[in-house]
């Protein structure tokens, strides 16, 4: 049931983004703010890796931003 909810959520979001994407976004010369270091997805990969390892070893969930596997025998 939950998987149906997730699939439905993804479809709705994808449809919303796909239908709205032509009116969303910016021109190439309007990317000044988006070009900032802190605006990049995965801007701090080392911080994220250390945090992910900590949470992977202490919680039952992992992944989401990327793949869930931990490659660690700690959990």
């Amino acid at each position: 049931m939950k998987s149906k909810h997730l699939s439905f959520l993804f479809l709705v979001c994808s449809a919303a983004i796909a239908s709205g994407c032509t009116s969303l976004g910016v021109k190439p010369w309007q990317r000044d703010v988006l070009a900032r270091e802190e605006m990049q997805l995965g801007a701090d990969p080392v911080d994220a890796a250390i945090d992910d390892h900590m949470y992977f070893s202490k919680e039952a969930s992992s992944g989401g931003r990327s793949f869930a596997g931990g490659g660690c025998g700690c959990n």
């Binding site: 997730l6 969303l24 910016v26 596997g69």
Partner: peptide, 23 residues
């Protein structure tokens, strides 16, 4: 595992990402 993602520039100062994954 598999992951499907959408990244969208919403405005000049707003970037969004949505992922669904299964493993």
């Amino acid at each position: 595992g598999a992951l499907i993602g959408v990244t969208q520039v919403m405005t000049r100062n707003w970037l969004t990402e949505f992922n669904v994954s299964v493993d």
